[in-house]
């Protein structure tokens, strides 16, 4: 007379899952940044590693400091899911090579604390944490973050790799030394001097710029691999790049001597890096295909507007942050129509 209680399992969809988890997605993207880090070291030497180390340290320490330690209800796995690590790496890659390490550290702290934790942690954040960190640094240290060092004259050689920029090692709260060799970024050259940079230099990354953004070819290859592995929605980077090409072609047709070529727009600055690594953040971008197209195209339009007519030469960061804020609205208008119902039934 053993009566087994009858079990009725009630589950909602989805019933089929890909075996994808947050740690796995994060580690795939982290692995995808390794070639970019390598390219950064190739052109900018050990400075790249120092800055990435500093921003990762800032991000991880903040994550650790604010994670509930002895909470029994919730295992403290937010440190181990790799999202803090990824934020730190991405932030480090968007910094100019001559930035002081303490600033990179501060950027990591701000990105994680203001960009993610005060909103409620991973999945609740409205803005891309790495970009929040960078936006803070841009607002706090506008000179340091727009001071570009030229890439090494003999990239890849041992001596240029080990030549550390003194400005990296500035003491906390102190200025980085100002006598380092500086130059203008390709976007700055185009905007203020109307001097285009050869596209091949842009393609292989032999230009001044932020650590991870200069080498176009590596970013394109990694982007394609990640898109094939479905680490992100391919529509987002594709729509961003298409929109930038389309919108920058118009002024270029009208006044080619004043405005950059669409190819130059695509390859210079942080556009590729932002499109592949930043805008595709699953938390802060729309989930529906239609939403992804709107999101990407709007970022592309904003980038062109800011770059050509704004006060700053580069606008990828602000464009992505602005559209991050608009994501909930995009989700609303891009809801797929429920089968069998009218258009207004949302």
């Amino acid at each position: 007379m053993i009566k087994k209680p009858m079990q009725l399992l009630l589950q909602t969809s989805p019933f089929l899952r890909r075996g994808i988890t947050t740690p796995r997605l994060m580690s795939e993207v982290v692995i995808a940044t390794i070639p970019v880090i390598f390219a950064a070291c190739w052109y900018f030497g050990l400075s790249a590693l120092l800055l990435i180390f500093a921003s990762v340290a800032g991000a991880m320490l903040t994550e650790w400091f604010f994670t509930p330690k002895k909470s029994s209800t919730q295992p403290s796995n937010s440190l181990l899911d790799g999202s803090g690590l990824l934020t730190g790496i991405l932030l480090g890659l968007t910094l100019p090579p001559g930035m002081a390490m303490w600033m990179a550290f501060l950027g990591g702290v701000v990105g994680i604390s203001i960009g993610k934790l005060v909103m409620g942690g991973l999945g609740q954040n409205m803005f891309n944490p790495a970009l929040v960190g960078r936006a803070f640094l841009q607002a706090a240290f506008p000179t340091a973050i727009t001071t570009w060092n030229p890439p090494a004259t003999s990239p890849g050689s041992l001596e240029s790799f080990t030549a550390i920029r003194e400005s990296n090692l500035a003491a906390p709260f102190m200025q980085s030394s100002t006598d380092a060799v500086t130059t203008a970024s390709p976007l700055g050259l185009m905007k203020f001097e109307h001097e285009p940079t050869p596209w091949f230099d842009l393609f292989i990354g032999n230009t001044a710029g932020s650590l991870g953004e200069t080498c176009a070819i590596v970013i394109i290859v990694m982007g394609v691999i990640m898109a094939i592995r479905r680490d992100f929605d391919w529509r987002i980077p594709v729509s961003i790049l298409l929109a930038v090409a389309a919108f920058s072609a118009i002024p270029w047709f009208i006044k080619p001597e004043l405005y950059p070529t669409p190819l130059g727009m695509l390859l210079s600055g942080g556009l590729l890096f932002g499109a592949v690594y930043m805008a595709t953040d699953p938390v802060t971008s729309p989930v529906t295909p239609k939403g992804a197209w709107i999101f990407g195209a709007s970022i592309g339009l904003l980038v062109v507007l800011i770059r050509l007519w704004g006060g700053l030469p580069e606008g990828v960061m602000y464009a992505i942050l602005l559209m991050n804020a608009a994501t909930p609205l995009i989700e609303r208008i891009a809801q797929p129509r429920v089968f069998g119902r009218g258009r207004s039934a949302v």
Binding site: A100, M103, I114, V118, F136, A139, A140, F141, P142, A144, A170, F173, M174, Q175, S176
Partner: peptide, 23 residues
């Protein structure tokens, strides 16, 4: 208080710095 090589956090002198600090 930091000596002459201090790097000012420009944002703190501007209104956004007020919001951040108050937060």
């Amino acid at each position: 208080i930091f000596g002459e090589h201090f790097e000012p956090w420009v944002i703190m002198a501007l209104p956004p710095g007020g919001f951040l600090m108050l937060g």
